[in-house]
């Protein structure tokens, strides 16, 4: 009887079986977006994704086997997920050696040195992506033009980059609106961008699946997206000629991919609802700040990484009230 009740402080570490189920569910949820990327970018999408997944798993296997010499962890699917998410954040035209390097950074710099899954401070896939973005800005920002989406004016530029460029030139939004992909094109994936971010609808389908399987809760995605909507909405209402509408911000770039699949990573997000609120609002604010006022057209990955760094602090100060305890009087 005495052994039945396990009392331990959170986090309650999941068993290996459970981890692999959760990870596999996220992978399944990403399949619709993967299908769209294959339709839009063709065989390139297959090659990039396959290479990325295989290298991530391979690096994790090698490090676990020969450097850490611990039990093998690759069958918990987390390396597969990292590889998949990383590939989703890359343009389909990236050279193979750069993809492999990104995987190496994700696994051998962001994940394993901290002690592997569960101990990494930053989302490995995003570290890999940002590493590549800063190191190879030319290759990381050249996208193959998508035939239906692009008019000549914006061949190969993501909608966000295109808008930023035009605004910098001093053009008003009304002048460039006709060149932007329509919202329905953005919903179905007919636009330039990283492999996994182009089809908003597919990402939302995956979100619903994850909610149904109770893999993630709605909190973080909703806080992130809500903050982005509110912030960009205020800007948009203040000056319609220079700040694009909130709907565009939600559909463009990595908003959905980041908010649903990467900000919600268990290891690198806060543990309770109030913590998630701070974390989600922070991501939303930083993303819009970078997009509107920063040098880069897209800020989702930076925002998530920055807020990842604050998670230990959030977890330390935002603790759930103990059951039965009266709230502290001031």
């Amino acid at each position: 009887m005495e052994k039945k009740l396990i009392i331990s402080p959170s986090p309650h570490i999941h068993g290996v079986d459970k981890t692999s189920r959760l990870m596999r569910d996220v992978v399944i949820a990403l399949l619709p977006a993967f299908a769209v990327s294959v339709v839009v970018y063709g065989v390139n999408a297959l090659v990039v994704t396959g290479l990325s997944v295989v290298s991530c798993v391979l690096f994790e296997f090698l490090i676990q086997r020969y450097l850490l010499r611990g039990p093998l962890t690759i069958n918990n699917w987390s390396a597969v997920l990292t590889g998949l998410l990383l590939a989703f954040n890359l343009p389909g035209t990236l050279p193979a050696w750069q993809i492999v390097m990104g995987c190496f950074v994700a696994i051998a710099v962001a994940k394993m040195p901290f002690g592997g899954l569960g101990r990494n401070l930053f989302n490995p896939a995003l570290v890999g992506r940002v590493f590549l973005l800063i190191s190879f800005p030319v290759q990381m920002t050249s996208f193959a033009p998508v035939t239906r989406a692009a008019t000549d004016a914006m061949s190969g530029a993501t909608p966000l980059a295109f808008v930023k460029e035009a605004l910098k030139k001093g053009m008003g939004l009304d002048q460039i609106m006709p060149d932007l992909p329509s919202y329905s094109d953005m919903l179905f994936g007919f636009r330039s961008g990283s492999l996994g971010e182009i089809a908003a609808l597919a990402l939302i389908v995956g979100f619903i699946y994850l909610l149904w399987r109770k893999v993630i809760t709605w909190h973080i995605p909703v806080f992130v997206i809500g903050t982005m909507t509110a912030f960009s909405g205020i800007l948009h209402l203040a000056d319609q000629a220079h700040y694009i509408s909130p709907l565009f911000h939600l559909m463009a770039g990595g908003t959905l991919l980041g908010a649903i699949y990467m900000a919600t990573d268990y290891v690198t997000s806060p543990m309770n609802t109030r913590g998630m609120l701070i974390y989600g609002v922070g991501i939303g604010l930083i993303t819009i700040l970078i997009r509107v006022f920063g040098a880069y057209p897209e800020g989702m990955s930076f925002a998530i990484l920055i807020m990842n760094a604050t998670v230990p602090l959030i977890n330390k100060y935002v603790k759930p009230r103990r059951f039965g305890l009266a709230p502290a009087k001031r």
Partner: peptide
């Protein structure tokens, strides 16, 4: 080369 290494984040990574 791999640009990040001559920028600030690369300093921390290489140092570590």
């Amino acid at each position: 080369g791999i640009l990040i290494f001559v920028l600030a984040p690369g300093a921390f990574m290489v140092f570590g």
